[in-house]
């Protein structure tokens, strides 16, 4: 039963990514698709942290910022290949998450939200103000990953949009696969247990603080890789990637789609990435419509869109 849910999600995702381009009216949509995948990757991390471990982070964009600027700075200053810079960013994010989370997650309650908020703001400030290194708010160029050229040499000639669409798509499938593995594993079960009843989780021997910390570190890595992919495909990055609004956006996407479900996270990321593109017609009403959508979802589909609809379908089936 669980296994099929996992395979169904992954299969659905692969089919969607593979077939969606057939319906693209223009090449522009490859770029929108790639953006959706990048956001969905970060939101998958939020699902692990918030949906399963029950912790809230309001500074996850900080990790995306680290991932993004690792790709911008490491190749130029230390001669590290951009692909390795992604790993470097992930490692730095993981270590930072561990340092911030370790003292905080021993406490009960939602202290992580406040601590991560502060952390995110600090990272954003550093990126804005350390002009010597980051060139400040105007942003900085990011070197080419060089993989498209490799593929071309191997006989596969993709446009820039096509390449990043499929590259980020594959990254998302891998990210979703790892998250779903975790969900069904002993660790994932322990995570969901501590979300259900922390005291009972401790009683059965679950080291609650350690487990929450692991979830925080894992989700930081997701955000970091997402930031790296964003920087690499745009070949340019500004400190906005680490901004508070971006953190809030991640949480909003997760909550809209369904914070406990990987499929929901991807759906939420897709909707909130697409809506602003569609709503350009409404220009100044964009925020208004987004706000209204969120309010309606919270009233009528409290668990998030995907889990609520799945529950309704199952309910009818029985």
């Amino acid at each position: 039963m669980r296994l099929t849910a996992k395979s169904a999600t992954l299969l659905g995702l692969v089919v969607l990514i593979a077939l969606a381009p057939l319906f693209f009216p223009s090449g522009f949509y490859y770029r929108v698709g790639a953006l959706i995948f990048v956001n969905a990757l970060a939101v998958t991390g939020i699902v692990i942290l918030t949906g399963w471990a029950g912790q809230i982070s309001l500074g996850h964009a900080g990790f995306a910022g680290i991932g993004a600027y690792a790709c911008a700075l490491a190749p130029v200053h230390w001669g590290i290949h951009p692909a390795l810079a992604v790993l470097l960013g992930a490692a730095v994010s993981a270590i930072l998450a561990w340092l911030v989370g370790r003292p905080i997650l021993r406490l009960k309650g939602y202290y992580l939200a406040v601590a991560s908020l502060g952390m995110g703001i600090l990272i954003s400030m550093v990126l804005n103000n350390e002009r010597e290194l980051t060139r400040g708010p105007d942003g900085i160029d990011v070197p080419d990953l060089g993989m498209r050229a490799l593929l071309k040499a191997a006989g596969l000639d993709l446009s820039n949009g096509e390449f990043w669409y499929f590259f980020c798509g594959i990254a998302l499938v891998i990210g979703a696969w790892l998250a779903l593995n975790l969900h069904d594993s002993p660790t994932g079960r322990a995570l969901r247990a501590l979300h259900g009843s922390e005291i009972a989780a401790r009683t059965v021997g679950i080291d609650v603080a350690k487990l929450k910390l692991q979830a925080f570190v894992i989700s930081a890595i997701y955000a970091s890789v997402s930031g790296s992919l964003l920087a690499l495909q745009n070949k340019f990055i500004t400190p906005d990637v680490a901004g508070f609004m971006h953190s809030v956006e991640m949480v909003t996407m997760a909550v809209l789609g369904g914070v406990g479900s990987v499929a929901g996270a991807i759906f939420g990321a897709a909707v909130l990435t697409l809506l602003p593109q569609v709503l350009t017609v409404f220009a100044e009403y964009e925020q208004l419509v987004l706000g209204l959508v969120m309010v309606l979802v919270m009233i009528f589909l409290r668990e998030g869109v995907v889990p609520s609809i799945l529950r309704k379908i199952r309910g009818r089936g029985e």
Partner: peptide
């Protein structure tokens, strides 16, 4: 526990 501590959604 007296006031039951099960993992409700599992």
């Amino acid at each position: 526990f007296q006031n039951l501590q099960v993992f409700q959604s599992m």
